[in-house]
Amino acid sequence: MSAAPPVAQVTPAGTSVPAGGRLPAQKKSRSLPRAIRFGLGLIVPTLIVGGWQLVVSAKLLPSALLPAPGKVIETFGLWLGIKDTPQMFYSGHLLGDVGATSQRVIVGFALATVMGVVVGTAIGVWTLADYLLTPTLRVLGPIPPPTWIPVVIVIVGIGQSANYTLTFLGALFPVVASTVTAVSGVNRELLRAGRMMGHGQLGLIAQVVIPGALPGIVGGLRIGLGLAWMMAVTSEMLAVHSGLGYTLWNAYNYFDYPAVFAAMILTGLCGLLSDVVLQLLTRKATEWHAETGVRR
């Protein structure tokens, strides 16, 4: 038996990828060793920290307002519990704080993902849903999530449920918006092909529309995940006793800027890590899209 000849693939976007699966340009960029890619990613943060240290050394601002990087690292030690003195309200609580906020992000973001994709798909597919929901979403979307705090207290009270709700609200709107755009942009040829294969409305949505829209949806999920972190940390100013935001807001209230900076950095790192996890989880389903992209 002779091997089958290589065949060009058709992606859900309706474009074709040459036999072998990858465009030469992508192959070239992906061939960079992991260490070099990691090194490239460190250049900008290193410049930022270097600039930060320069500004501190030049004493352009009071050190209490702009602490040196070294002071922030010391505060990490205090927060982690490696350093004993001075004893602050956050001493030794770092892992617990990361765990508490992560839990709030996961619950809020998961709820926003389910609701956002369902509502976004409905709007993208059905005109009636569009007319019914879009005006409301356009009004609600620009409202800064922290201003929901009093409303959320009235509706769900205070405690974890309020944090979950606020995190959910923070992540929801970008997920809906990106889903609407991605679903609306699914190639009509694919829909026609799906119908010819005998799919009904729901079958088309599940088998053609969602897979075809997934790259756009994932983009929205990544934005939503960032906002979920932002909102989880913001919501922790309210009625909690742990979390990155709890530490950040209390430190902010007491002018403990090294702790504020440490909490900001740690929030960013947690956001980065969760984004990497999201990319890994969705990579398989969106690989076809990456391979038809223009990036070199």
């Binding site: 705090i149 207290i153 009270g157 205070i158 100013m237």
Partner: peptide
């Protein structure tokens, strides 16, 4: 002690959260 901004205290009392 539950950390609630001043602006949220009336709501927290109203719904029995505190």
């Amino acid at each position: 002690f539950v950390n609630v901004p001043y602006q949220g205290m009336a709501q927290a009392l109203q719904n029995g959260s505190v």
